[in-house]
Amino acid sequence: MDHKAFRQLLKRYLDNSCTDDERNVIDQWYELLDNETIDLNDREMGEVESRLWNKLQSASKEKAIMVPLKRRAFPWKYAAAACLLGLVLTSGILWFRSNAKTPAAGGTLVAAKVTAGFMEQANTGTTPKDVQLEDGSTVTMYPGSKLAFPKHFAAAKREVYLEGEAFFKVSKNPNRPFFVYNNNIVTQVLGTSFDIRGKNGQVEVAVKTGRVAVYENKEQLKLNEVQQKSNGVIITPNQKVTYYQEERHFVTSIVDQPVPVPKETKKEEAHFVYNETPLYKVLNDLEDTYELEIVLENDKIRNCQFTGDLTGQNLFNKLEGICLIFNATYEIKGTKILLKTAKECP
């Protein structure tokens, strides 16, 4: 994201026209300032804006921004956003990029590939449509979607071009990675199942099984060498990434409804029935089942005993049951779950 996109996002935040995800991003950015006071003069506010921008850039290079699912109210942030936006607008600094205008979405790519001899499938109906590719991969195309693909994949890689939304179940072949080109991003996998959806200038990729790399299309956006090195994220089962096309940034999080991840070696189905079981073992079962990391804020209660039946409940209901026993709460921090508990066992 550049300064111009940063300013636009602040304005939407003030106008209350941003999405929930964008609002969460703003909240987290201000947390980078370590909750500093807003009672500042113009010069001090300018320094705060500079520090925020520098920390944001540094954080984006190190890892994907983690966005809490449960947003707390920070009224002072509206005042801070207003001050920062005013400074940005009156500073006289103009930021431009040569590729500010987003190239046409996947439709242009699909049309170009069909003209070049690729095959095309379109779902003009009202129900999902399955398409079988030559390598055994299956694409479930949602209504209104188009897909361009070669009759025979290349020896070194498999490439398809998507306009719209689809669910992919990719056959495994480590020697021939699978690429999906959609709008300005590329999704790369070795063998997995994942979902691609788009709306309101956003593209969302959610993983069901395997690992997926999602990054900007360097040819389409003409990325320089530095941009390519810090481009994209890797997500695993029950994780998703949202790409904001206008701002050109990625936000990782947990899918809305995590499901148990199928194992290659079939195990006995977990029943989640516990009788005076240490808490850490209960959490380990959840991590193994959903392949998500659960962080215990207070390690002193890891051996506290839990008794209960969590069978048949989704992940979040299981967590609510645990929280009820331990007088705890949980928060989604990016792709991790933070369990905030009492200081002692109940």
Rank of each mutant, 00 (worst) to 15 (best):
K77R: 15
V282N: 01
G117L: 02
N275C: 12
A270F: 10
T37P: 09
R197I: 10
T108H: 06
G312S: 08
Q239M: 08
T140G: 06
V110W: 01
Y78L: 11
L56P: 07
P258E: 02
A81F: 01
T209M: 10
C304I: 07
V273C: 08
I235T: 06
E320I: 14
I235G: 03
L14V: 13
D309F: 06
T209N: 07
P260K: 04
E165H: 08
T252G: 03
A156W: 04
V160F: 02
C83E: 13
E225C: 10
L56F: 14
Q239F: 07
P258V: 04
R7V: 09
K266Y: 05
V203C: 05
H249I: 15
I322L: 14
Y290Q: 09
Q305R: 12
G164K: 01
E331L: 10
L52K: 01
T242Y: 04
N275R: 11
V110E: 07
S58T: 15
A81E: 00
V251N: 13
D39H: 12
A105C: 12
T289V: 11
I332P: 04
T126H: 12
A156T: 13
V207H: 02
L190E: 08
L223M: 08
E31D: 14
R7E: 15
E276N: 14
M1I: 11
F6C: 06
V226T: 11
R71N: 13
K300C: 01
R23N: 09
E49I: 13
E320W: 00
R71C: 05
M66L: 15
Q28E: 15
V212W: 05
N217F: 05
N35E: 09
D42A: 12
E44N: 10
Q132I: 14
N303W: 03
I185Y: 00
Q202T: 09
A100P: 10
L310E: 03
C304G: 00
E36W: 05
T329Q: 15
I325R: 12
I185V: 15
A112Q: 01
C18R: 06
N182H: 04
I234Q: 02
R72W: 10
E269V: 06
I65G: 04
L310A: 09
N35L: 11
T108C: 07
K229P: 01
N183T: 11
L296H: 05
Q202R: 12
E293A: 06
D39W: 12
L40T: 13
L286Y: 00
D34R: 03
I254Q: 09
G210I: 08
E134F: 00
D39E: 14
E264A: 11
N182D: 12
T277F: 00
K340H: 10
K300H: 11
G308L: 01
A155M: 00
R97T: 15
P75R: 01
A122F: 03
E264S: 10
F272M: 05
R23W: 03
E287A: 07
V110S: 08
